[in-house]
Amino acid sequence: MDTLLFALFAGIAILSAVVMIMQRHPVSSALALVGVMGSLAILYLLLGATFIAAAQLIVYAGAIMVLFLFVIMLLNAGAEPKPLRQSFLARALGFPLGIALIAILGFLIQRTVPPDSVVVRFADAKAGSPQDIGRALFTQYLLPFEVTSVLVLIAILGAVVLARKET
């Protein structure tokens, strides 16, 4: 069951990511990214991170991406125009280099984390409930938590200043 769910949602995530970078229209890209985020939430659940999975859906998919979609719709952004002239070199080299990037990263992972050393089973997950997160957040990670709250405050101020009408 774990294998099946993992294969299904990892597949959806990668497929949506490919669709996202191949689509010319920003709305299609945004929706594909929502697909990636949704399937990542399922993968988090498989890893036992229930709270993070819910936060992923609420914060990322439910708030940040809605903001993106809102801006795209507000600006009525159309599809990217096809480039007038396309470099042959970029076509010929870009695709293999992209594959190479994935291959290098995969190789590094294979080397540093020996395969089959840890096996993921849903029932074996030790931590990740809201209680665990809350306890760690308000004891061990209290300072970073406060700092991020200041960061969010600054971001709010920045957004307000940027969006305000010039007088």
């Binding site: 229930t50 999975a53 819910a54 936060a55 859906l57 609420i58 998919a61 439910g62 708030a63 809201p130």
Partner: peptide, 13 residues
């Protein structure tokens, strides 16, 4: 154990 959050996520999506 995240029941309330699931409802919030569903309404957000």
């Amino acid at each position: 154990n995240i029941g309330v959050l699931v409802l919030l996520a569903a309404s957000g999506l």
